[in-house]
């Protein structure tokens, strides 16, 4: 187990290096630069800025310098937020996105898994059709429609929750549901498919032959196998959730990580783009590792393979 985790961590290093390299050169070769604005700034100021950030040096030197700093954990200064380090910006925004992500994931699992199980157990009845059509609607309905809809109903009409901002727990409810319901829809469909597959297995019949109640058959015998596809989906889904959503953040005015992804790219904020991409990549690698560990915990055969 320790060996497995260690080897995965070691494998992550070249992956991150490739991602850093590709992103570095892609942003640099993209037209435009951080200090190109619509209103031309005086040439001498631009030159001064570029030399301040080391942009006047040969590209490969910049690349080596970036890697050197990266090894020390230094993501460099932001070009567009003067006085801010990229790591500082991520550190202030990430907790917000993490909170939103964890809450959304919780909602997705709490709604999606039971809905999927019930649909599988009552296949081809209204208890299957209803949640499955709702989940199809949930997948089709974009968050920028669902978000304002929820704001209209629960804030404007019922006055239950604040429509926007990120100050206290009351603010968390609407964005978490907007984001969570979308994922709940996916989770429900995956759970249903996984459960239908498992419920047909011979060992489920064995459990019934022992006299196990339907509850026991599901919780003890079928659920583990049935949830494996969900677990596989969870890794990338969770990484997407906690790294922020630009749309949700814009609708609800949330100071999360998502906006950095978009604005940094538009602004040619080179260090910010690199920082967020690397952060996201590291997050995916970490979560996939966690998913593998979770799968091993669920499935003894996978445990042996490790």
């Amino acid at each position: 187990m320790k060996k497995f985790v260690l080897s995965r961590v070691v494998q992550a290093v070249p992956t991150l290096w490739v991602i850093a390299t590709l992103t570095f050169f892609m942003t640099r070769y993209a037209p435009g630069g951080p200090f190109d604005t619509e209103k031309a700034i005086p040439q001498e100021i631009k030159v001064k800025l570029e030399s301040h950030f080391g942009l006047d040096r040969p590209l490969f030197d910049q690349y080596l310098l970036y890697l050197k700093n990266l090894l020390r954990g230094d993501l460099g200064p932001s070009f567009k937020y003067p006085g801010w380090e990229v790591s500082e910006l991520i550190a202030t925004a990430f907790p917000v996105s993490l909170t939103l992500g964890v809450l959304s994931l919780g909602i997705a699992l709490l709604i999606g898994i039971p809905a999927g199980i019930i649909a599988a157990l009552r296949k081809n009845t209204w208890l299957d059709y209803l949640p499955m059509s709702l989940s199809m609607a949930g997948i089709c309905l974009p968050t920028f429609v669902l978000g304002p809809l929820l704001i209209y109903i629960f804030s404007t009409q019922l006055g239950l929750f604040p429509p926007l901002g990120w100050y206290g727990p009351a603010d968390w409810v609407l964005p978490s549901f907007t984001l969570g319901l979308f994922y709940a829809a996916y989770v429900a469909r995956l759970t249903r498919a996984g459960m239908l597959e498992t419920l047909q297995q011979d060992y489920v019949r064995t459990a019934r032959a022992k006299g196990a109640s339907p509850w026991r058959v599901v919780t003890r015998h079928a659920l583990r196998g049935g949830l494996l596809p969900v677990v596989t989906y969870l890794g990338p889904a969770f990484a997407g959730l906690i790294s922020g959503s630009f749309i949700i953040e814009s609708i609800f005015f949330i100071p999360g990580l998502g906006k950095f992804f978009v604005t940094a790219a538009f602004n040619r904020d080179y260090t910010m783009v690199l920082g967020t991409v690397l952060f996201y990549a590291a997050l995916i690698i970490l979560l996939n590792l966690l998913v593998d560990l979770l799968q091993a915990w669920l499935d003894p055969k996978a445990r042996q393979a490790q």
């Binding site: 011979d202 060992y203 032959a209 022992k210 006299g211 196990a212 003890r220």
Partner: peptide, 24 residues
């Protein structure tokens, strides 16, 4: 019926590979 299954009447199936739960 559940009270009889496995207590008064038990059953063995054909394929021992698929009839045991791989997760337990």
């Amino acid at each position: 019926i559940r009270g009889i299954r496995g207590k008064e009447i038990s059953m063995i199936f054909q394929d021992p590979m698929s009839c045991l739960n791989p997760y337990l």
